[in-house]
Amino acid sequence: MSQGTLARIQDEFARALLLGDEAAAARLVEDGLPAAARLQIHRNHLFHSLTQALMQTFATVERLVGERFFAGLARAYVAEQPPRSPCLFEYGESFADLIARHPACAALPYLADVARFDFAVNLAWNAPDRPAIGLDGLVRLDADSLAGARLALTPSLTLLHSDYPLAAIWRANHRPRGEEEGVDLDAGGGRFMIWRHEGEAAWRELAPADFAFLQSLADGHCLGEAAETAGGRGSFDLAAALSLLAGQGVLIGFRSAAAQMSSVINGEVS
């Protein structure tokens, strides 16, 4: 047998399942049921099982648009961007982007952000565990090291700024089926932090300056830069922001282990 036949078969199979390409059928034994019908079992399973997975992760989106419309969106997404990981809780990171540019969703301008919120809640639930450090970990630094410290935040955290009232939409659509409530989009948007807090997926709305502070830290800027950025966004209370960080279990350590910090990292993390 020539080298690489299995690789070719697997490539043909992937095209058969994702795109409906029929070349793979010629590889199969014709025996009773036609080869195309046999391939269809795997094709149906691929789309059905991943639609179910997306439906669980994007439960709010599914409530908003109904099962059939959601299945159509999911089908388009699976064909275009199949999972990159076998862990289904990690699937759907870019589903919101597909919603944002899909013509069928043009009349639902808030839907992409709802999807981002759903994915953030999913991430909050499933992200790896990292022990939080308190402010004591910062106290050991001298003033200059403190200002230059780049803080690491929990991997369960998502920061999301939306023009729409995402928390109200989420709440209204997680009541029993048939009892979902209405939401007034004109109630306005918000800036959300969504993360795992005491074992539960949680969120809170942040003031613009606090949001800018966390966003700057999440982008890898040092504490001094983040404080300056936040200060430029209206009234900012750095003490309150720091106590929020530590009190909510968001702070997990330092991004780069500069020599003078290694003792702190060893002492506080792990």
Partner: peptide, 19 residues
């Protein structure tokens, strides 16, 4: 493409000028 017709969920309950 049959699904493209109309979303049939609770989005009917979302109201506001931004729509």
């Amino acid at each position: 493409d049959a699904w493209l017709a109309v979303p049939a969920g609770t989005c009917a309950k979302i109201v506001g000028a931004s729509l």
